[in-house]
Design a protein around this nucleic acid. Structure first.
Length: 201
DNA sequence: AAACGGATTGGCT
DNA sequence: GCCAATCCGTTTC
């Protein structure tokens, strides 16, 4: 059920970004469990990717988490307001990561509704990286957590999408990365209402 | 020590 | 559609 460490040590971050679609992301906070199906991701290709915080081998207090062995969470504050959750992948010192941009609420929907103050039927409850994190209760305390432990983890529930149900397109909000901004490294489930806008390729 | 700006969101026009 | 909110990691003086 819970994805093992070996899943995350795969050096192919583009594969993992697509394969995570359909997997189920869990958090347990004060005995309350919430989970959602991952329906949108983006791959960040380590030192070679101008959109990555680790571009050019950048190593600072914040980016140090990205250099961990695969299977660790990387959470940082964006625009002073939103906590963005990433899965660190590959081997130690290879700072690849997958940003989770949207989930479809699955377990603990009532808790997510309280956290977001809106019904779970409304797509905006968990569409977009800031919203998805808030629905799951993820904040900066979730940085550098081991995904094989029991605070935050990912399970395989046998949900998978065929290649024609997965759309690839340019990543969102990375115009500063120049030519790398055009790479089709955003992946999402076609037609799923919890995918953030734009929901076309 | 101080300034800068971002892997976004939601409320108002 | 546009724009303010809001904070801390990073860069610069």
């Amino acid at each position: 059920m819970k994805l093992p460490r070996s899943y995350y040590s795969n050096p192919d971050v583009l594969f993992i970004a697509q394969d995570l679609l359909g997997k189920v992301l869990f958090t347990e906070i004060n005995g309350e469990t919430t989970a959602g199906i991952i329906v949108e991701t983006e791959a960040y290709f380590g030192v070679h990717d101008k959109a990555s915080h680790a571009y050019g081998g950048r190593r600072t207090g914040r980016t140090e988490t990205l250099y961990s062995e695969g299977g660790v969470s990387y959470v940082y504050l964006c625009y002073g307001i939103h906590h963005l959750f990433n899965v660190v992948t590959s081997v130690q010192d290879e700072p690849h990561a997958v940003l989770v941009r949207a989930i479809e609420p699955l377990i603990g929907k009532e808790i997510m509704e309280l956290r977001r103050n809106m019904p779970a039927t409304k797509p905006s409850i968990s569409a977009g990286p800031g919203s998805a994190s808030k629905a799951l209760g993820i904040d900066r305390l979730f940085n550098r957590k081991d995904l094989t432990e029991n605070e935050i983890w990912i399970e395989d529930h046998g949900i998978s999408y065929s290649s024609d149900e997965i759309i690839a397109g340019p990543r969102i909000g990375v115009a500063y990365a120049q030519e790398d901004a055009l790479l089709p490294w955003r992946f999402f489930v076609k037609g799923n209402k919890y995918v953030s806008k734009p929901n076309k390729a």
